[in-house]
Design a protein around this nucleic acid. Sequence first.
DNA 1: CGAGCACTTGATCGCTTTCAATAGCTGTGG
DNA 2: CCACAGCTATTGAAAGCGATCAAGTGCTCG
Lengths: 252, 252
Amino acid sequence: MAREQIMNVADSKHDDCGACPIRHRAVCARCNEDERDVLDDMKYYRSYEAGQTVVWSGDRMDFVASVVSGIASLTQTMEDGRTQMVGLLLPSDFVGRPGREHAPYDVVATTDLVMCCFRKKPFEVMMAETPHIAHRLLEMTLDELDAAREWMLLLGRKTAREKIASLIAIIARRDASLHLSGPEGAMAFDLPLTRVAMADYLGLTLETVSRQISALRKDEIILLEGKRHVTIPNFQKLLDEAGDDSDGGMLN
Amino acid sequence: MAREQIMNVADSKHDDCGACPIRHRAVCARCNEDERDVLDDMKYYRSYEAGQTVVWSGDRMDFVASVVSGIASLTQTMEDGRTQMVGLLLPSDFVGRPGREHAPYDVVATTDLVMCCFRKKPFEVMMAETPHIAHRLLEMTLDELDAAREWMLLLGRKTAREKIASLIAIIARRDASLHLSGPEGAMAFDLPLTRVAMADYLGLTLETVSRQISALRKDEIILLEGKRHVTIPNFQKLLDEAGDDSDGGMLN
DNA sequence: CGAGCACTTGATCGCTTTCAATAGCTGTGG
DNA sequence: CCACAGCTATTGAAAGCGATCAAGTGCTCG
């Protein structure tokens, strides 16, 4: 908490795009070398600590960015304080909308976070001239729309237990794809979200989240070490609890 | 019900794009005359009756399309039959995803429906060569993503009464923008959805939908003639019931 | 050691669902 | 013409799930 409180100002500009861990999945994934050189000159990094707000809803947003590492969340809040997470941004995900002045949601760093930013105007110009970027952004936006619609089913129709199981399954799958390990064998990882964040994501209260996690643990669908470390002995059993189709909701 | 059961096969190809009612909002909105001529040659119309399924989830989808008139819905269904509407497609909205083989959702004609279709392959080729189309599609997809996220807040955090009020407000606003009448004065329109469809959209049961509509009528937030015709004496009062921000959730 | 935080667990409340009966409407056929 | 089926919608009563209110635990940090 105390380390580098000014880190979000101490931005770095020196990492080479060629070594970027997200270059094959981010908005720049389709760019050729020349195009990437231009972006390389435009970009700057910003870092945020877990809990910091990156952008406030309604604020002017003069940049767009890719998540390089860590997790950010998009959150909507009603006047009386009810909040709903409407997006979970993982490494390579894109933040901001070309052509829009103001942020429609709060963007919050859920874990320590590094973003690769571009000032909006130059990026818009570049996008207009570079079909590779526009196409990749369209593709990513369509994927996000699919994910949002999957989430609508969860929010509208799933029970609390199914919601928790679904969230754990999603995190497990993402973790597996990061570590390039197949789905065979026991999966184990740390939950990157607090109970409150999970509740905001799932449209539940934190008490219900806690209770359902306890219930899944009691039924040995998941194993817990401490508050955060999860082991999944049988992924199919978890999917059954999530109520998803038998294909496990595989993308495409 | 009995009239023109084969209408979805009796397709028309003759309407001129220049007279198209959605040409200023659809995916082709940014096209110049030459580009539109090409689309004009590619396109064909298809009509569906209320209740017909346009595409089944998982089916091969060899076309993309714009809604010309009527309303279509995107629906997800769980194994045990629970269903959630994840998209409401109004005139000018786009159906289908370039680059995807199979439909991820059921597409159902909620009212009688006319769509302007393009075979997918030629459309993809055209899109790759025509930035105007790709850009417009990106813009529309980003708008849809915003709408989906607004809907996630509704599904996750709003009460049944707020959900109903929100839905009626959305339909009222859309109707007003169609009829080019300002929000002043009493608004009146027919609900284009059955109670079941509303329930599927809102993540409720049809009984709860019915009860909350009755409650809003008793409180004189809305007036009902028959089952479907709604009059809104005071739009602001409806917005208050919807729990939206004071700006009424105006786009942009 | 005590404050603060994240989390868990218990008891109760209340909103939405579930189950069930009924109304209103349209179309069909005796 | 009326009886009846089929559909949409309304309304009532009861049940259940998640929310709310309230302690209490375990951990970290000062």
